[in-house]
Amino acid sequence: MTPITLGGSAAQAPQNFPALLDLLESRPQPALIWYGAGENQERVELSGRVLQNWAVKLIGLFSQETEIDEDAPVLVDAAPHWKAAAVLLAAGALGWRTTLSAPAAAQDDAEALVSLASGLEPGLIITDRPDAWTGAGPMASGLGEAELAALSPGLLDASFEESTGERLPAWALDISAEVRQHPDQLPAPLPPLALPGATTGAESGAAAGGGLVVVGAAIETSLKDWRLARWAGEELFAQMLQTWAQSRPVVLFQGDPAAQPEAWEQMLRNEGVR
């Protein structure tokens, strides 16, 4: 299979967030492809236009429904999911200092995440497991004074509770319940904030025609013409942005390739990642 591209050329790559959103809006080709975990692996594909639309609606939502200080960090605590990727794009366009943390899988990981949150003192935590931050578990102590926003996993979710069966605190922001009410146009022009540059292999995959594959767990492998990254850290966000700026797709594989080798191989075949 020929690797997917968004079209365009590296010479025309945007250098700031408004230009990147304009590029995405103009592209009907796939920009973000997500593979869910589990036996019945779900696949969701977002064109550049749809990704831009989600980002614009999220920008409107966050601009009107959050009251964080301009310099306050934002912590995104979520699995590798297309909604989390759209959130990262919107947060970057707003100029937020965003830290990405993959969900804790063990007690030690949870304590490390609490330590991270305590050190950051975030103004906002965006998470796909709000109960962990508001319940009686170890992570609740890391919420501090931060606002909380909940990400549900479905494409057509009317609310977090409808999707998961879990009720949110009245003070928490339900992204799925609120985002569709916001317009498809930006509420105000965005500042021309520069895109962060990826420092590791930023050009190698795009130059060869591939894109970026992101996994939730570490894996040692070689992907011809594609870059591979783990879902964590500021460097990943920069790589995602540069991939879209170079008109290439980002593929999110939420499962563990080592635990799901057949699903991993099927994804590689589906997307022409070889």
Score class of each variant (00 low, 15 high):
T2P: 15
P3Y: 10
P3H: 10
N16H: 15
P18I: 04
L20S: 00
L21I: 11
L23Q: 13
E25P: 01
R27G: 06
P28H: 03
A31R: 03
A31H: 10
I33W: 01
W34R: 02
G36P: 03
E39N: 11
N40E: 04
E42Q: 15
S47W: 06
L51T: 07
L51D: 10
N53D: 14
V56Y: 03
L61S: 04
L61E: 05
Q64I: 01
T66Q: 03
E67S: 13
D71I: 04
L75N: 13
A84W: 04
L94D: 05
T98G: 06
S101F: 01
S101P: 03
A102N: 14
A106P: 01
A106I: 01
E111T: 06
A112M: 12
A117E: 11
S118H: 03
S118L: 10
L120H: 11
E121Y: 07
E121D: 15
T127S: 14
A132E: 13
L143I: 00
G144V: 05
E147T: 04
A149V: 09
S152Q: 09
P153I: 00
G154Q: 10
L155D: 15
L156D: 15
D157L: 00
F160N: 07
S163E: 08
S163P: 02
G165Q: 04
L168F: 06
Q185D: 11
L186F: 13
P187M: 12
L190F: 15
L190E: 10
P191Y: 04
P191N: 03
P192K: 05
G197T: 13
T199S: 15
A208E: 14
G211R: 04
V214R: 02
G216P: 04
A217V: 01
I219C: 12
I219L: 14
E220K: 11
L223D: 14
A229H: 12
W231S: 05
W231L: 05
Q239I: 02
D256F: 08
N270R: 14
G272E: 02
G272Q: 01
